[in-house]
Design a protein around this nucleic acid. Structure first.
Length: 663
DNA sequence: TCAATCCGTATC
DNA sequence: ATACGGATTGAC
């Protein structure tokens, strides 16, 4: 077959070599491969198009990365089998980004490309390219109201820099009550004014609906598209093609939209980068915030990280000078912030299950009652069920940490038999906490922290007979609630926006958020509280069920997210935690994990922790290095995976850098 | 001495 | 996966 085909198809005269990214996940094949282009494909085998090639006997998908006059490959080149379509779907800018993402997280290019380029939908591709996108209605005139960015110190200068073609980078702390989708849309409009495009990321579909509406308001219809998994394959691919074909330059979407092939990218923006939903659950487990930061850096685009709260990573970008801080003046914050009070006695209630409904903290219920009587909705935030049990100081409730490596202590099950004892042990290095003492108060006793049964809507209904109770949570999320007396019970992240703002908010079981076995417990608690409290009208009462002295609670009371983030950042730096350090988690059957670590040429600074048993017969090892050695760590582990995949080692090993849920 | 077979390795 | 090269084996 080869000789016959080669006789039929002579190589192209110009640039007969195509360099391809082939879709094979094996780590040792994570590099480009050169193929010969036949004369008849000379015109269509352009950089960025999909191809099919015979790769070690099998037909596999591939992308053309570039065309070259000759190959550096010593052996014989095979001919490219066929070009799938002439649509350019992988532009060089995104190819470079994908390579950088793969390298940074120790993964393969093909894994990243599967996320970056949506699966082809042939019928959609064949449609005439002028079809309307999301079923847009009639065109509206772009809104041109006042620009509330002027409330934010350098905010207007930031937009002006975008419009003039520069690449300003900022961490933006939105004022409570801010109509943030409108502000993001204005930033996008500034890009358009300067002849460039923008990518705006939001955590979930509900936020996307809001940004979509704001963009339509700011830009008029048909000037942008949305990208998210729940559009379905056809609509998603249709919208995505409009970006490829440069028919739109503004994209709003969920995490995978970070790779949207917007031409002349002027801005990448992300709302609430601390949200867990930005952590990609598929290999190589890149975080969308970091992907955008990388993209801004590689492509010379501006960057905007906006939120009510602030992540330690965002604080890090400010601290290193990579991004500027855009915040409102203290007076403006004071004028708009709710009035926050901590209800410490909620702790006692949490312990005494029976007393709950009887001994409701009177301040909380007074505030709720007042708002309801005034005809205003009241937001009640309740934690989701099913927190991982963690250990805390018996006296002061500070989360308990390992004396040796600083990892979180948890209840490990030792022995599967009956009468098995549970003893607290480190979740990172597995050392039992035999001689523990609290770093805060010196107490030597530990207690297990478990979230009890959550207060139900019915309980609240009993406390306020006759009140309308709505719920918003995992199964049924409400987008908005009207300006009328109602109790709105919501889990974090599902809080509906209230027309006119909530009259009050109760943030229940706040202590439970703070004692999670999670490095980010404080930061995450504040993020959830602020996202809820920001929906309350200025000066409205917000009651949080947690100790007033805890830093996260202080930050909420003073509405000082940057203060907490900076504090967290310096604390973590002192303790060798991320983002000052980088971690890798290696999970698999014990022999396979040991195999990877033996093959990996880790940097000298690497500290290996574990193993810790995880479910079934699997175990996990952690490797920690200072941030500066992060790239070396990623490379070493990717190479080690390559050695194993070349050997066809049977047991799979999951290598995850910056494992989000562990830290 | 040569063919059949096995094993390891590369995959353009 | 599959193809190939080199080593190994077994029959003449």
């Amino acid at each position: 077959m080869p000789s016959r085909q080669r006789a039929q198809h002579a190589p192209a005269e110009d640039n007969p070599v195509a360099r391809l990214a082939v879709d094979v996940p094996l780590a040792h094949l994570d590099r480009p491969f050169d193929y010969l282009v036949t004369a008849d494909l000379a015109g269509t085998a352009a950089p960025g198009v999909r191809a099919r090639v015979r790769f070690s006997g099998r037909l596999v998908d591939a992308f053309v990365l570039e065309r070259l006059p000759a190959s550096e490959h010593g052996g014989r080149l095979a001919f490219l089998d066929r070009i799938v379509s002439s649509e350019v779907v992988l532009v060089p800018e995104v190819a470079r980004l994908a390579r950088a993402v793969a390298d940074h997280w120790g993964g393969s290019l093909s894994d990243v490309l599967r996320l970056a380029v949506p699966p082809r939908h042939a019928r959609t591709e064949a449609e005439s390219g002028t079809a309307s996108p999301d079923g847009d209605e009639a065109s509206t005139e772009p809104g041109n109201g006042p620009v509330p960015w002027s409330l934010y110190g350098t905010g207007r200068a930031y937009l002006a820099a975008l419009a003039s073609g520069r690449a300003p980078r900022a961490v933006w702390t939105a004022l409570p009550g801010e109509d943030w989708p409108a502000r993001l849309a204005e930033a996008a409009r500034a890009c358009v004014a300067g002849g460039r495009g923008a990518v705006l990321l939001v955590p979930d579909r509900r936020d996307l609906v809001r940004v979509d509406a704001a963009l339509r308001e700011a830009l008029g219809a048909g000037q942008h598209v949305t990208l998210s998994a729940d559009l379905g394959p056809a609509q998603r691919y249709r919208n995505w093609l409009r970006i490829c074909r440069s028919q739109v330059r503004i994209v709003a979407g969920t995490r995978a939209a970070a790779y949207a092939p917007v031409a002349d990218l002027g801005l990448v923006a992300i709302w609430d980068d601390g949200d867990d939903l930005y952590a990609e659950p598929r290999a190589p487990y890149a975080h969308a915030r970091d992907v955008l930061v990388m993209r801004a850096h590689l492509s010379g685009a501006g960057a905007l990280l906006g939120a009510f709260a602030r992540s330690a990573e965002a604080a890090q970008l400010v601290a290193t000078g990579w991004a500027r801080d855009i915040s409102a003046r203290a007076a403006a914050v004071r004028a708009r912030a709710p009035a926050v009070r901590a209800m410490a006695d909620d702790e006692a209630l949490a312990r005494d299950e029976a007393a709950r409904t009887a001994r409701l903290p009177s301040t909380a219920w007074q505030a709720a009652g007042t708002a309801l009587r005034a005809g205003q909705p009241v937001l009640v935030q309740v934690p989701r069920r099913g927190y991982v049990p963690s250990m805390a100081c018996d006296r002061c409730r500070a989360p308990a940490r390992c004396a040796v490596c600083g990892g979180p202590l948890g209840q490990s099950r030792s022995g599967a038999g009956s009468g098995s004892q549970t003893l607290p042990a480190c979740g990172w290095c597995a050392r039992p906490a035999t001689d523990w003492s609290c770093a805060v108060c010196g107490e030597r006793r530990l207690r297990a922290v478990v979230v009890g049964a959550r207060r139900t809507a019915e309980e609240l209904g009993r406390a306020f007979p006759g009140a309308l109770v709505r719920t918003s949570g995992r199964d049924a999320v409400l987008d908005t609630v009207p300006a009328e007396a109602s109790l709105v019970v919501s889990t974090p992240g599902a809080e509906p926006v209230a027309v006119g703002g909530y009259g009050a908010a109760l943030l229940l079981d706040g202590w439970a958020l703070l004692t999670r076995a999670d490095l980010r417990a404080s930061e995450e608690a504040l993020r959830r509280w602020m996202n809820a409290a920001a929906l309350v009208r200025p000066g409205g009462p917000v009651l949080v069920g947690a100790e007033a002295g805890v830093p996260a609670v202080q930050a909420l009371v003073r509405w000082a997210p940057a203060w907490l983030a900076e504090r967290e950042l310096s604390e973590r730096a002192a303790l060798g935690f991320p983002p000052a350090s980088r971690f890798a988690a290696i999970t698999g059957v014990p022999a396979a994990v040991a195999d990877v670590l033996a093959a990996a040429r880790l940097p000298a600074s690497a500290q290996v922790l574990g193993p810790v048993p995880v479910d079934d017969s699997l175990e996990r090892m952690l490797v920690r290095v200072p941030r500066a050695d992060g790239a070396a760590l990623a490379r070493a582990l990717h190479e080690a995976q390559g050695v194993r995949s070349a050997r066809k080692a049977p047991d799979p090993v999951k290598v995850q850098l910056d494992p989000h849920e562990l830290l």
